[in-house]
Amino acid sequence: MTESTGTPTRRTEILDAAAELFARRGYHGVSIGDLGRAVGLTGPALYRHFRGKDAVLAEILLDISHRLLAEGTRRVAAAGDPRDALDALLRWHIDFALGNPALIVVHERELDNVPEPQRHEIRRAQRAYVEEWVGVLLRLHDLPEERARAAVHATFGLLNSTPHSAGALGREAMAALLHAMATAALTRAAGPA
């Protein structure tokens, strides 16, 4: 979220700082005061922007889930064939994961700390994103739907490991490695069970 001038809004600054803090120290290791200090506010001043720490976390995870789904859906729709769609999904997810390591950590670790209504919406968006990938795999390969879904989840495990592994190589080399590994894994998903 940015204002029309292209500068981050205060809410965006809070969300970005919170993602970094939650990734580094965990949701329970961060106080409202910590969040406020990270963006030059007092803890109580943060309540003008969010009703509490759980609302900050919920907005971070809702945003991630909706962004992944929207862009994934757009890329699949724009692809000429299933191979192009898979390539577009891989490139999108790899770019997102490498560019947002804190968000990936928070996304995989903190969902249980989100209040139930938002958690349900996050899970709905996550499932829809997975189903975009599953649909592409089913168009590419003759395989059971359960196997395609399991392959997608395993591939996400690989791609979302980047906060722990990306520092070993430069971003470009890591993106190429992840793309090659994930393509190989998803191609092998069609092999014998």
Rank of each mutant, 00 (worst) to 15 (best):
A17I: 02
E131D: 15
T5M: 08
P192I: 15
S65C: 11
L98Q: 05
A189S: 15
R83L: 11
N100K: 09
T9K: 07
V136T: 11
L89C: 03
A148K: 00
T162V: 14
A77E: 08
V56N: 00
G33A: 11
T73K: 10
T5C: 09
S65F: 02
H153I: 11
E172R: 14
R37T: 10
D63C: 00
A184M: 11
A128H: 12
A168Q: 08
D81H: 14
S161R: 07
R123Y: 04
R74W: 02
H120V: 10
R11E: 12
I14N: 01
R123A: 13
V105Q: 01
A151N: 05
I94F: 09
L68Q: 06
A70G: 10
H179I: 06
L69Q: 03
G6A: 14
I94T: 01
S165G: 05
Q118H: 03
E121R: 08
L57Y: 00
E59Q: 09
P192N: 15
L15P: 04
E13R: 15
I122L: 03
G167E: 09
A78L: 02
T12V: 10
F22L: 05
H28E: 13
H179T: 12
A128L: 14
E108W: 12
A193Q: 15
A23Q: 03
A77F: 02
A180C: 09
A150S: 05
L86K: 03
V130H: 03
P44Y: 06
M181Q: 14
T155S: 14
L15N: 01
L159K: 05
H28N: 09
L35F: 02
P163W: 05
R67G: 05
L61M: 11
A193F: 09
V106C: 04
T155A: 14
G40N: 07
L137I: 06
L69V: 02
F156H: 15
A55G: 06
A151P: 03
D84K: 07
E108G: 15
L69T: 00
A193W: 15
Q126K: 11
D87L: 03
G135L: 02
A182F: 06
L177R: 11
A18Y: 05
H164Y: 11
R74S: 04
R10E: 08
I94R: 01
M1I: 08
Y47S: 07
M174E: 09
H28A: 10
T162W: 04
A38I: 08
I104L: 04
